Amino acid sequence: MRTGLLSAALFLLTTLSTVAQTVYTGDQVIDKVTYKGIFLTLPISDRQVEKEWEDYIKPYGKISSSRSVYRITTADMRDISAEPVNFTSQVKGNKKSTTIFAAFDMGGGNYVAPGNGNYDAASKWLTDFATKTVYNDEVRVAEDGFNEAQKAHQKSVKNGERLVRDIENNKKEKERLLRKIDENAKELEQLTKDVETNKTEQATALTEVDNKKKNVETVKTKKQ
């Protein structure tokens, strides 16, 4: 168990190191409006990331979402800014990789960016999400693997029980066939005896026929 947890922890650290290298700043056009923000790429499916992302930003205010775009007007994100933030994000990806774009507008188009005091906090906020999401995904994959292994074991047990029943049925069938063979041998022996008896009966009957025939001829001769 400890070995498994250690392996998972090492994998998580390695993955997060890779994730940290994929955090970068840039512009993103959303609904024909250009936003300045931070990009974060995760080696996880977009469907899974969207679920995690919506849960992650939910505490900061009322979410307005459409086509993988999430907005929170006057978000209360005090770890990033003491003042309300107009938060806009977009999730794009596929089954293997997902990129999140997050823009933090502190008012009048004053976006969080490298060089201002809010950037490190925003970057850490995204990194914290990466840590949480990668961990949850690892747990999900491990649980899926466990469930599959459990199903395979249950299937193997049921198959073993079926094989035991088949063996018992085979033994019973063998016993039945052996009894049938024994009965068949006895029947054959009796039939053989019956055939010999029948031959004797046929010979006796034939003799009787000859005798009766002679008797008929004798009677006819006397009448003449």
Rank of each mutant, 00 (worst) to 15 (best):
G160Q: 06
S89A: 10
V91H: 01
W53N: 01
S65C: 09
G107D: 07
T41L: 05
I30G: 00
Y111T: 04
L6I: 10
Q190S: 13
L178D: 09
H153P: 04
N215E: 15
N94I: 05
S81C: 09
Y60M: 04
Q48S: 11
G117E: 09
T218E: 15
L126M: 07
A152Q: 15
K158R: 05
D31V: 02
T3G: 12
F101V: 04
W125C: 01
K92G: 03
R179I: 07
K186S: 07
A9D: 07
E187Q: 11
Y24P: 00
M106Y: 06
V219E: 12
K199N: 06
T192P: 02
A82E: 13
E161S: 08
G108L: 08
W53P: 00
G160Y: 03
R71S: 05
T3R: 11
D105N: 09
G115P: 02
Y56V: 06
G108F: 08
Q21V: 10
T41A: 08
T207Q: 15
D144N: 12
T14Q: 11
T41H: 03
E217W: 05
I38K: 00
K213P: 03
I38D: 00
N198M: 10
T99N: 06
S68N: 09
K58N: 13
Y56I: 09
Y56C: 06
D137M: 11
Y56Q: 08
I181P: 01
K172A: 13
S65K: 14
V19Y: 00
E143I: 14
G115E: 07
T15R: 11
T88F: 01
V23Q: 08
E52G: 03
N94W: 03
E143N: 15
A203Y: 08
M1A: 13
S123V: 04
I38N: 00
T127N: 06
D194W: 05
Y24G: 05
E217S: 07
L191R: 14
I44G: 00
D46S: 14
